[in-house]
Design a protein around this nucleic acid. Sequence first.
DNA 1: GCCAACGTTGGC
DNA 2: GCCAACGTTGGC
Length: 154
Amino acid sequence: MRYWLMKTEPSDCSIDDLAAMPGQTVAWYGVRNYQARNFMRDQMRAGDGALFYHSNCATPGIAGIARVASTVYPDATQFERNSKYYDPKATPETPRWFNVDVQLVRKIPLIPIRELRRHPELERMRALQRGNRLSITPLDPAEWNFILKNLVRD
DNA sequence: GCCAACGTTGGC
DNA sequence: GCCAACGTTGGC
């Protein structure tokens, strides 16, 4: 079992949007970065833990706990001509981009990135590294445990 | 809105 | 295969 941090812009899909989805589950479409794709395609498994992270907003940070709720499958938007995620080089026979489904476990009081940066236990966390832009990054089990044990309130 | 950092593209 | 130009990301 692995752990992930998954970024989303709340204006696109917030934790409340996720909570309102049928089954509180959303298809994680639109990943168009090869490194993030490879994490998803090669390492994600149903049942993996995920931190649902709000980026590019007033208070970026971890907004909820989620889980990977499906195996990987081709991202349908790569074949849709009028989608902004359309990829002319992708075919159904050789898809280039993939999805998993992500299901809410629970919404939590937001843990701002500024707080994450205060803890030496998290200083090596991939998502906090300078210049990191990956929308999907792996979390060490130790980082996952630290956050759940010490930073999640309620 | 700024801008540093990074990924991608395409001419050569 | 190099690398400059360009586009995107995302915290601030």
